[in-house]
């Protein structure tokens, strides 16, 4: 995987909980361009541990002068966003991956309907740039609890096809009204909480939208949880996964090589076989099918955890 070492050029508070980080090449060299909806993975070294979180790029994808990400502080997370908020200053160097995209626009669409919930606005911010450049029709619906929580507000143009839904002000999003009557060939994209993604998919299904026209991105940072133990089948090695550590991070810390990309349960790269399981795998990914999850024979170590007596990985 290609890595880039970039300098933090500017940190801006977008809301009480969300900061925007602008990253540039230390020599001013242009950065690789990307496509709307792409993300980068940020290395966050702390002692012997390297945490890695993926963040959507919110800047113009056709502008290689710098990358911008927006990070929401999660006080109950496993520490990645707190690291970004409290340990990273302007002028620091950060190691990041090249841009990758698991939430690209389907450019076959006659119209793009973008639905964001809360911090789920981030992938749409780069997509809006791309849609404007390509001159493709779209509308954006951005739902947030309150204006002060709507961090994306300052980054959105004031335009008739940008719709804000602030539940505190009584303007809750009406998915039926949004999806009904869209022209044939429209595609809908949702990013936000699982409940919103499910609600959009259900509503679209009720209106007979083809499943290939329904897109979503739910990947988030790995959740913390109770510590647990795993066994490596090939070596018999026992590893302890800490409360604020993902299984993938614990494997990396123990130098057990596992391929990865998104670190958010969406890309499938870290899929690992389970050779013995006496307990319950806590699946948090969006990659394995419900049947695969229920079989407890596979796990996505970037996101998922375990509760029980024994988990043996086919590594």
């Amino acid at each position: 995987m290609k890595k880039l070492t970039l300098r933090v050029a500017e940190i801006t508070a977008l809301s009480p909980l969300v900061k925007r980080f602008r990253l540039i090449h230390p020599d001013g060299a242009p950065l690789p361009l990307f496509s709307g909806g792409a993300h980068i993975t940020v290395d966050m070294p702390e002692g012997d541990l390297i945490r890695r979180n993926s963040y959507s790029l919110v800047s113009n994808p056709y502008d290689g002068a710098g990358y911008e990400i927006a990070v929401r502080r999660e006080d109950r997370g496993r520490g990645g966003s707190l690291y970004m908020h409290t340990r990273v200053s302007e002028g620091d160097l950060l190691t990041v991956s090249a841009p990758k995209n698991l939430f690209q626009l389907d450019l076959r669409a006659r119209k793009h309907v973008l639905i964001a919930g809360g911090i789920g606005i981030t992938p749409f911010l780069s997509q809006l740039h791309q849609l404007d450049i390509l001159q493709q029709p779209y509308e954006l619906h951005y739902a947030a609890h309150s204006r002060s929580e709507a961090a994306g507000l300052t980054l959105l143009p004031d335009a008739p096809h940008i719709h804000l839904h602030i539940s505190e002000e009584g303007s809750r999003m009406d998915l039926g009204a949004i999806l009904d009557g869209q022209p044939l060939g429209s595609h809908v994209y949702t990013c936000g909480p699982d409940g919103l993604i499910r609600a959009v998919a259900d509503q679209a299904a009720r209106l007979n939208w083809p499943t290939s026209a329904i897109h979503s991105e739910a990947f988030t940072a790995p959740p913390p949880g109770e510590p647990f133990e795993v066994t490596i089948a090939s070596t018999g090695q026992h590893l302890r996964v800490g409360a604020d550590q993902s299984l993938l991070e614990a494997l990396e810390a123990a130098h057990v090589p596992v391929d990865y990309s998104c670190r958010g349960g969406a890309c499938g790269r870290c899929e690992t076989g389970v050779s013995a399981c006496n307990g319950q795998i806590l699946h948090h990914d969006h990659w394995l099918s419900p049947d695969e999850q229920a079989s407890q024979t596979k796990i996505m170590p970037c996101m998922s955890r375990f509760k029980g007596a024994r988990l043996e990985l086919d590594l």
Binding site: M1, K2, S97, A98, P99, C267
Partner: peptide, 8 residues
Amino acid sequence: LLAVEQQQ
């Protein structure tokens, strides 16, 4: 192929 990334 789905895992091929930019720059590589």
